[in-house]
């Protein structure tokens, strides 16, 4: 829901990198999105389209590397998909599960010229 402000944050970081490296245009912005970052990638892309106008990133695309959402069982160690949200381990039936993942949202790199 706050993807617009995040898109603005991305643009601020891009402009800071431009001031440092002196490139003209950004072609691609590569992001790493943690499984627990609360980000909707589609909403972020849409928001970015709104803030990139008349900037060095006017034609830039966003490439998202999304961390998989995985739950592991603390009893037997089995790993399963976190969506839609298993309440018990598919292997041993234990409800002692562990949702793993990062809350991070990082700019990994920029493709520029």
């Amino acid at each position: 829901m706050h993807e617009l402000s995040l898109a603005q944050n991305i643009m601020e970081i891009v402009e800071a990198e431009r001031a440092e490296h002196g490139f003209e245009r950004v072609h691609e912005i590569r992001l790493k999105v943690g499984a627990l970052s609360g980000i909707d990638p589609q909403a972020l892309e849409l928001a970015f389209e709104a803030v990139r106008e008349d900037t060095c990133a006017a034609e830039a695309t966003i490439e998202i590397d999304a961390e998989p959402r995985v739950v592991t069982c603390r009893r037997c160690g089995a790993t399963m998909d976190a969506d839609p949200g298993p309440v018990a381990c598919g292997s041993c039936g234990s409800t002692d599960l562990d949702l793993q993942g990062s809350t991070g949202l990082d700019i990994v790199s920029l493709e520029v010229d």
Partner: peptide, 11 residues
Amino acid sequence: MADIPVRKSVR
């Protein structure tokens, strides 16, 4: 074209 590593949190 060049690749610039950023490795910075958006937040």
